Simulated scan of single mutants.
Amino acid sequence: MTASVISVVDLGVRFRRNRRGRRNFKDLFAGKNRRSRPGEFWALRNVSFTVERGEAIGVVGRNGQGKSTLLKLVAGVLLPDEGSVTVSDGVAPLIEITGGFVNDLTVRDNVYLTAGLHGMSRREIEARFDEIIDFAEIQDFVDTPYKHLSSGMKVRVAFAVIAQLDEPIMLVDEVLAVGDKAFREKCYRRIDEMLAGGRTLFFVSHNERDLRRFCTRGLYLDRGSLVLDSSIDDVLDRYNAEYNS
């Protein structure tokens, strides 16, 4: 029997319109009232689903419908206001992947720092360092301060580091849309290899071609609600019919 690696039950999360970010700690721990206060809105509510080990799930919906918020909840970056998110395996978060890199450090130091923060030991990083640099195609910039790299080079370094993680679940949020065509294809081949190795994929994207390439199942979010959980073809067909109507 296949085991669930992600379980989402009656999930709800809310934000404030009138200021940036989540509620403060006082808000989080004071009271049990779940009604929205003035200026608040529910980004997600009453969302439930499970993901089995080895599945490739595509999350579909227009901008502002809760897709990236859902991904961050699964990654543990955000905490829910209602319901629960249970993740039984480790995650490799390909979301906002250049975040956490330090501009004044060299590429070499950033690789060690970022890989270490994601749980790789120094010995593991040393063993994979050349592979990371080769994948990113920045052999001539290893000792260059990170801030001097182009935006495309920064994305290549970040993906190359995260792609070395052995975590069973991949969380991907449009990050590959930034690189050039040749590097995107290189990343896609790497994701194909990971899927062939039994990894689980949770993929947020507006790119229909990518969704059909990688995913077999889809989740369609609209106004913070899960309106369809079906095959990726069914989900995309409904999304296209409603979006273009």
Rank of each mutant, 00 (worst) to 15 (best):
S68I: 06
R37T: 05
P93S: 08
V85H: 04
G100L: 08
F101Y: 14
E96G: 15
K26N: 06
V111I: 15
R37I: 01
D89T: 05
F29C: 04
A115D: 00
K32V: 11
R53E: 15
D109W: 01
T50K: 12
Q65F: 11
E82S: 10
R37L: 14
S84E: 14
R37M: 11
I97M: 13
S88T: 15
V85S: 02
K72L: 03
A75S: 13
L28I: 15
T98S: 13
T86I: 12
F29V: 14
E55S: 09
A92L: 02
S68E: 01
N103C: 03
G54C: 06
V47S: 05
A92R: 02
T86E: 12
L79F: 07
P80S: 07
T106S: 15
G61R: 01
K32C: 02
N33F: 04
G116N: 06
T98E: 13
P80Y: 06
L28H: 12
R45M: 02
W42P: 06
V107I: 08
G31A: 08
E52Q: 14
R108S: 08
F41E: 01
N103Q: 14
V51Y: 05
F101N: 04
T69I: 08
G31N: 07
T114C: 00
T98V: 13
F101K: 05
W42Q: 06
T50C: 07
G90T: 07
T86D: 11
N63D: 09
S88P: 03
W42H: 04
G116E: 07
E40P: 10
S84V: 06
L113E: 02
L113P: 03
G76L: 08
K26V: 14
G90Q: 11
K26M: 09
G66F: 00
P38N: 07
R53H: 13
G66A: 01
V85I: 07
Y112M: 03
N33C: 04
R45L: 06
G100Y: 08
V59S: 10
L70C: 08
P80K: 08
G99E: 13
K72Q: 12
G116A: 03
S84A: 15
N46T: 07
V91Y: 00
K32S: 13
G99K: 04
V87Y: 11
G90N: 08
S36F: 03
L113D: 01
S84Q: 13
V87H: 12
V77W: 00
V59N: 10
T98M: 01
V111K: 09
Q65S: 15
E52Y: 03
V102H: 14
L71F: 09
T50P: 00
T114M: 14
V74Q: 01
R34P: 01
K72D: 02
V85C: 03
D27E: 15
V60G: 01
I57P: 10
F41S: 02
I57D: 03
E40R: 09
P80W: 06
V102W: 00
L73P: 10
L70W: 05
I97R: 09
E96S: 13
L70K: 09
A30T: 15
V60E: 00
T86P: 00
E96D: 14
F49Y: 11
R34E: 10
L70F: 04
A56R: 14
L73T: 09
T106P: 03
E96V: 11
I95E: 05
